[in-house]
Simulated assay, not measured.
Amino acid sequence: MSDAILYSGNAFSVADGKGRFVLPLEMRKLVVQASAGANKLCLSIHLDNGCATGFGLSHKQFLFDEVEELERLAREAGRDFNGDLERENRLGMIEDVNFDDGGRFFLHPDIKDEAGITDAVFFYGVGRYFQIWKPERLVESSDRPALIRNKVKRWIEARAAGATK
């Protein structure tokens, strides 16, 4: 059995008055575990989905090791492989941020802009990392499961009606 940290579940967060979001408790516990006990969150952009991603430090090492393995396999098969470019794509966009014991953190402005995030996010655990979505963008993403899209749509509607923040 693998000792990988696996994220699942989902939650919403609305930015506080300082612009901080709150990492959900269960995800926060796993990030701390994956970051050797530190309150250190790695944030990046998902190149295909248009959302941000989050994970602990151990996943950053996994990404590096994965490129090393791809490089080795390409070399053995006599295929071209640009390991430097692959490391740039996987590691070059990662921003390490601290979060307090309550899970509050600032989402890097570049990542917010790329993901279209303003004042609310939807955390979505999908395995070795979790996705951080602008709720409206997730609803528009037909590739996401209908159950999740409908949940987020109901939250957006309730928020617009003043039933939630």
Results as ranks from 00 to 15, higher is better:
S2C: 01
A4W: 10
G9S: 07
N10L: 06
N10D: 13
D16L: 10
K18H: 08
K18Y: 03
G19T: 10
R20H: 10
F21S: 02
V22R: 15
P24E: 07
P24F: 12
P24Y: 10
E26L: 15
M27F: 11
R28Q: 12
K29V: 00
K29M: 08
L30E: 07
Q33R: 13
S35A: 02
A36P: 00
A36D: 14
A36L: 05
G37D: 07
A38T: 08
K40F: 02
K40N: 09
K40Q: 14
L41W: 04
L41P: 05
C42A: 14
L43W: 03
I45E: 04
I45F: 05
H46K: 01
H46W: 10
L47T: 10
D48P: 00
N49S: 09
N49V: 00
N49K: 09
S58N: 14
Q61L: 02
F62G: 00
F62N: 02
F64P: 00
D65Y: 03
D65I: 02
E66M: 13
V67M: 01
E69K: 11
L70H: 08
L70T: 01
L73S: 10
L73T: 09
L73K: 15
L73C: 05
A74Q: 06
A74K: 06
R75I: 02
A77G: 04
G78R: 04
D80R: 13
F81Q: 05
N82E: 12
N82A: 13
G83A: 15
D84K: 13
D84Y: 14
L85M: 12
L85N: 04
E86Y: 00
N89Q: 13
N89Y: 15
N89R: 15
G92A: 08
G92T: 12
M93G: 15
V97K: 02
F99D: 01
D100N: 14
D101I: 04
G102M: 09
R104A: 05
F105N: 02
F105A: 03
L107A: 06
H108T: 09
H108W: 12
P109K: 11
K112A: 13
K112E: 04
E114R: 15
A115R: 01
G116T: 02
G116Y: 02
D119S: 15
V121C: 05
F123H: 05
F123N: 03
Y124E: 12
G127M: 06
G127P: 06
R128Y: 12
Y129S: 10
Y129N: 09
F130P: 04
Q131P: 05
W133I: 03
K134D: 14
R137T: 15
L138W: 07
L138N: 03
S141K: 08
R144F: 14
P145R: 01
L147P: 00
L147G: 03
I148S: 06
R149F: 07
K151F: 13
K151V: 11
K153A: 15
W155G: 01
A158C: 04
R159L: 10
A160W: 05
A161K: 14
G162F: 13
